[in-house]
Design a protein around this nucleic acid. Structure first.
Lengths: 243, 243
DNA sequence: CGTAGTTTTGATGTCAGTCAAAATGTGTGG
DNA sequence: CCACACATTTTGACTGACATCAAAACTACG
């Protein structure tokens, strides 16, 4: 298992991507004091459940996670995926209850950040407050991108956007931005993109055939990043826009 | 013109819905000191433009607004609508630049809240910091609802959801939740819902024919709120969900 | 009352969903 | 290591909801 699971903020290699970003050394230490390490989670293990009282936010230390909203009829809808350094549970800040559930897609670890302590610390460390605002702003901006994606893009453009999203985030983490494994099932991808698994499968097969990517099961290699980006722009849109 | 345009926080009837919600009288006064009143905006006047440096957030005092993201090809995509008491510009907290543009749908007024001053005040007033978190959490949660809507709902359910969203928000403002005017054009509704104006028109006509609503141009009356809610749940979904 | 913008209505086309079955992968016990 | 069961993914044929194209009806404003 990744030894990262038990490292504290000052020694964590995610320090520049996670909550402590931009803080001074002693400020990071203060933050580290309120952060609790949680035991690792296994695949399909729930981190928190929709409706539960939210007393902490969670940062991904390793592995990846999927958050989803359950409908009354027992169906569920994937809202997003989380990679290391990203903060989960932000949607619960409104009422203090989680408005979605989050599950581990693979073995992984998280840091628990108690909200009360975090708020206290924000009042003391201006940089931390700024950083929290930045993270919240990022979450909102990225949700807007998802709204754009789902509202107006054709299946092929959705698939391309999804791959580019992962590519960018893996790249930022220091991993390869062109070769990576999908930690989620086709079903999860389809649900996230507002498509069926058959359509996801077909789009991936087509991109593979065209040589833009090479895909074999969970393994993905992007052969032509520029072409993939071009697809997002030039793909015939499902719903045309104004002007 | 609405005299509300020039009232300050302590005298504003939105005090319970807007940023000052939950603060003590003297705290509201402190907040009022940093809030600047802006001159009223006319229909189609831009409040801020995507890419501009963001130094302030804006609260809707009166009227309504539409925010949208412009694509490279000149098309635009509506991200959301804002009614009185709601805070605009939150997506800019990430980089300090607006990631969307916002335009007035009718004559309206806004309060300008300088970000630097707001951050200073948040450090001093714990309740304000909490309230900011709550507002940001609400924005994120409501964006998740939009993702759900666009990813998985049929045209009829989208239309019904849109009407219910407005109904609820107008109700919270003290207006009628069953009779209201749409301040946006069909084009804006269509773009927001990821549909074409023809489909929006047809769905509204059908709901009208069924007697669920009475619609005449911009004027809408909801005749059967429960039936409208039932439509959202039971409408055949465009993309079926897991399980 | 005329022009331009917006909304509605109608006829037709297509992308992605649905249904069905085959292919591939994964895990378990003998 | 193999055999079997089960889950996941792929492929194929067909269908339907919504987009597209086109034109008429309605509004608004000078």
């Amino acid at each position: 298992m990744d030894t990262l699971a038990w490292t504290s903020c000052p020694d964590c290699r995610l320090v520049g991507l996670c909550l402590p970003h931009g803080l001074h050394t002693n400020e990071v230490k203060q933050l580290a004091r309120i952060v609790k390490n949680k035991r690792p989670l296994q695949t399909d293990e729930l981190l928190y459940v929709q409706g539960d009282e939210c007393q902490s936010l969670y940062a991904v230390k390793s592995g990846s996670f999927r958050s989803f909203i359950a409908n009354k009829d027992g169906t569920e809808q994937t809202i997003g995926f989380y990679l290391p350094g990203e903060l989960m549970g932000l949607d619960s800040l409104q009422y203090g209850r989680f408005s979605c559930s989050t599950v581990a897609l693979e073995t992984g670890a998280v840091c628990e950040v108690p909200l009360l302590r975090l708020n206290e610390l924000c009042a003391k460390i201006p940089g931390l407050q700024t950083q929290m605002m930045r993270i919240l702003g990022k979450e909102i901006a990225s949700d807007h991108d998802k709204i754009l994606l789902l509202g107006h893009r054709a299946a092929k453009a959705r698939m391309a956007t999804f791959l580019l999203m992962l590519s960018k985030r893996y790249g930022a983490l220091g991993f390869s931005s062109t070769v990576f494994n999908l930690s989620m099932r086709r079903q999860d991808i389809a649900n996230f993109l507002g498509l069926t698994i058959e359509t996801v499968s077909r789009q991936l097969a087509e991109l593979n055939k065209q040589g833009v990517i090479t895909v074999k099961q969970r393994g993905v290699q992007i052969n032509d990043l520029e072409l993939l980006k071009a697809l997002v722009e030039h793909c015939p849109v499902q719903t045309p826009c104004v002007k």
